[in-house]
């Protein structure tokens, strides 16, 4: 067991190695070069770009790479070329907003997608199944910016039941502690903390639906197909012959087996959520990492682009590592094969 975890970590290290080579290469293409990573070592920031910093000029590319890795591991991603602030600390201001939104979106997708998928599998080839399948196809192929605008127009502007944008009503002054608005509002000592919590929840509804739409479609479809293949298994047939109830058949026997492919698909949705957050956050003016990165692209703030890519890619790699470990607990086959 320990061996597998170690193997996974080696896997992770090699992914990170490839990623770092990639970002290291990209950083060399930036107009300012890679100096921004090392600038905090220089005596004066004003001299940046005019002096060879940290002796880089005399060293070869390999040793620069190792210095670069050293800096990255210490959490130094350099400074924003526009604002001059530390990118690492900026990332931790914006990223929790994205994470919070993604988690809620994923919860939305899972809590609706899995039951829908099971329903479709149970009613295979009936009209309900066909309706679900064609709806998910629409959901999957719909451009999310369009979907977002449609929802905003309907629910926010026409019906007026959801907010248009941002994380929380601006009347609430919430001190960022964890960066997760739902938690911070509860931690807040202001007398309006309960109202603030509901406001934060309220603001999450539309963006989470928008961001969760594609994962919802994918999860529904993969649940359906996994369930269909699980339900046609011999063990289900024999269990049925033993006279178990429908509920037991579906929830206890079939779903457990179907979960494995579903979790794999879920893992893949992490990167979908991150890419989707770029658009969702822009439309809902959600101050998350996606919007942060997009603004950096508009401003050609290369150090931020570099740091953002590195941090987000590392996050995706880490999630996959964790998911792989989870999978081993869920799937006995994986344990045995290792």
């Amino acid at each position: 067991m320990l061996l597998i975890v170690v193997r996974q970590i080696i896997n992770f290290a090699s992914s990170f190695f490839v990623l770092s080579l990639f970002t290291f290469g990209i950083a060399h293409l930036f107009p300012e070069g890679i100096d921004f990573i090392f600038s905090h070592n220089s005596q004066s920031k004003l001299l940046l770009g005019t002096l060879p910093i940290n002796g880089i000029e005399n060293s070869n590319i390999v040793s620069v790479y190792f210095q670069y890795i050293g800096e990255i591991i210490q959490g130094n991603l350099g400074q924003s070329s526009v604002r001059g602030t530390s990118i690492f600390s900026e990332f931790w201001i914006y990223f929790p907003a994205t994470l919070e939104l993604s988690i809620v979106a994923l919860l939305f997708a899972v809590s609706i997608g899995i039951p829908l998928g099971i329903l479709a599998a149970r009613l295979k080839n009936k009209w309900q199944d066909k309706l679900i399948i064609s709806t998910t196809l629409v959901g999957y192929s719909m451009p999310i910016f369009w979907w977002a605008m449609l929802l905003v127009m309907l629910f926010s502007l026409w019906l007026g039941i959801t907010p248009v944008a941002s994380r929380i009503g601006f009347e609430f002054d919430i001190l960022p502690v964890t960066g997760f608005m739902l938690i911070d509002t509860l931690l807040s000592t202001q007398e309006y903390s309960t109202e603030a919590f509901y406001s934060a929840l309220h603001h999450l509804v539309l963006p989470a639906i928008v961001l969760g739409t594609i994962p919802l479609a994918v999860i529904t479809r993969s649940t359906r197909s996994a369930m269909i293949s699980a339900l046609s298994g011999d063990y289900i047939l024999s269990a049925r012959a033993r006279g178990i109830s429908k509920t037991q058949e579906v929830w206890k026997h079939a779903l457990r087996n179907a979960l494995i492919p579903i979790i794999t698909v879920l893992g893949l949705q992490v990167s979908v959520l991150i890419t989707g957050s770029l658009i969702t956050e822009t439309i809902f003016s959600w101050p998350g990492a996606g919007k942060w990165l997009l603004e950096a692209v508009y401003r050609r703030d290369f150090p931020v682009i570099h740091g953002g890519i590195l941090a987000i890619a590392s996050f995706v790699i880490v999630t996959h590592l964790l998911l792989d470990i989870v999978m081993m607990f869920v799937d006995p086959k994986l344990r045995r094969n290792a």
């Binding site: 039941i161 959801t162 009503g169 009347e171 609430f172 309006y192 109202e195 509901y198 406001s199 929840l201 309220h202 509804v205």
Partner: peptide, 11 residues
């Protein structure tokens, strides 16, 4: 949806 918007009025 409903609960959160009714709460909004109190603020």
């Amino acid at each position: 949806l409903v609960s959160s918007c009714s709460n909004n009025d109190n603020t």
